[in-house]
Write a protein that binds this DNA or RNA. Structure first.
Ligand SMILES: [Mn+2]
Ligand SMILES: [Mn+2]
Ligand SMILES: [Zn+2]
Ligand SMILES: [Zn+2]
Lengths: 143, 143
DNA sequence: ATGCAAATGAGAACGATTATCATTTGCATC
DNA sequence: GATGCAAATGATAATCGTTCTCATTTGCAT
């Protein structure tokens, strides 16, 4: 573990425990940006930093509630988490390789608010997931 | 059951069986537009048209693959299906009452394509789910 | 160092969905 | 209309992601 930052936990009203520090550190190291509970569990194991799976689930949920992480539900039935850096963005998921690309487009965001308020709703949240095939070299499975 | 239409099944390469006709008819009657497997199962039971739950799951998946239905994964962990009427639309889900409202906005659609192709992806599909609170009278739980 | 509420971890339980497999059905052929 | 057979069904078991339970451990204030 590199640089544990208990301040983040304390300020979120969560007491600074070893499992929480390990999970937070894993996201802060940033090797993988979007991770499922299983991803986190296995990565910690691989790093020799074992934490119970139930605890991983609990901690991820707490972190999401505390605003340290953001939870996403892509296709595939498992929740995926990422560090919350304060700025909203949406996601493109490559159907070939699973790679996740982030983007933000203010025209889309603005338009969403308008459309929804015109329909008489007060928007709380939204998820925009685009499923696509990479055409750039970044995709290992590209044609 | 009102007016079974085996043609739809045949043209989809699915043979016309009683359970399939019952499920298709339920969607075509249109009482509820967006239904989960459990919704379908229970509604058929209530109509005195019992079909095994496993069959409901199988048939819904087959219909979605055949393009008769569209599958959505809203928050809540269960798949929801609706009749495929050929025209794409997105969804607003009321956080208070669960009511689902549909909308289509060509500005959003166009912008999505542009953003994604600029990033070097070939867009295949997308899901835009907006979570909101009703402010109109249509919401039974409204403030 | 002590005490204790809060957190952890192993495993059971759960809800949604899929797989298994013996029985039934649609439907083509006679 | 009867026959045959591959395909479909339905009861149930199994699977998967996630949450719950509860005995044990830990952070931290005293
Ligand atoms: Mn992201
Ligand atoms: Mn719809
Ligand atoms: Zn790719
Ligand atoms: Zn509502």
């Amino acid at each position: 573990m590199d640089t544990p930052q208990p301040e983040h936990l304390k300020s979120a009203g969560l007491k600074s425990t070893l499992p929480r520090l390990k999970v937070l550190d894993l996201f802060q190291r940033g090797q993988e940006r979007h991770m499922s509970a299983e991803d986190v569990y296995k990565q910690l194991l691989a790093d020799g930093e074992s934490v119970g799976l139930a605890t991983v689930y609990r901690v991820l949920t707490q972190f999401a509630q505390a605003g340290l992480l953001v939870r996403h539900n892509f296709e595939g039935g498992k929740s995926v988490f990422e560090l919350n850096e304060g700025t909203h963005h949406d996601h493109i998921v490559c159907l070939q390789c699973g790679h996740v690309e982030e983007f933000y487009d203010s025209a889309i965001e603005t338009r969403q608010k308008k459309v929804v308020s015109d329909l008489g709703f007060a928007i709380q949240d939204h998820s925009l997931h685009i499923y696509a095939d990479c055409t750039k070299t970044k995709c290992p499975n590209r044609r």
